[in-house]
Amino acid sequence: MIRIENLTKSFKNENSRLVALNNVSANIGNGELLGIIGSSGAGKSTLIRHLSLIEQPDSGTIWLDEIDLFKLKGRDLLRMRRQLGIVFQGYHLLEQKNVYENIAFPLQLVKMSKTEIKKRVDELISLVGLNGKAQAYPVQLSGGQKQRVAIARALASSPSLLLCDEPTSALDVVTTKSILDLLVEIHRKTQVTIVIITHELSVVKAVCQRVIVMDEGSFVEDGSVKQVFTSPKHEMTKLLLGYQEGQL
């Protein structure tokens, strides 16, 4: 169980203060498949940087079970980071390493034995549907295939939470569908908690059970996808759903 508690973060520019996260709170249960949606600048990436423990909040915190994530230091922090899987919009693979080595990377960090790594990586390669591509280098892969590698890499250390920051924004419609199907299948098979951050309504509709709508650093709506999208309350939700002004 993840508890986001009054999380606040602001950035100081030359002469203004920009509140990127404004006192947001939410609980994310184990095994949930949650979508967080918002327009550009809503604070989605800022939120995910906090969830991935590379940014410190001004105030508030995130709890993972009984652990206050922002109190972790040194070795404990590294250990916690290794329990999170993150998929980025830009893939960020090692260009000089092949598919196999990329997926093995997080396992090498924890000095897992070669035979164990092989077993795990082979498993993941077939889970994400990249059979026969183990020796290929990223440059030889399509965007969708690269994202599959990135997903396999994120899952390598068997995380309890998989964070996806705009996982399909760089992909075409067909590839997007296949990646989303893959995420749903992974969720079904492993029951890992998945948080997908996106600005695309279709992504949330296709895969998520629950959705949080973000606007200007706040969570403005939070509920089941069905409920939020059939009876939207906040202006931003309506905007995302494509309601026209005057039609409301």
Partner: peptide, 18 residues
Amino acid sequence: VDEGLIKAAITMGATSWQ
């Protein structure tokens, strides 16, 4: 080297040496 890749390695719990 891709800055995002460095960030990614940090989030994977890599030490500075790694």
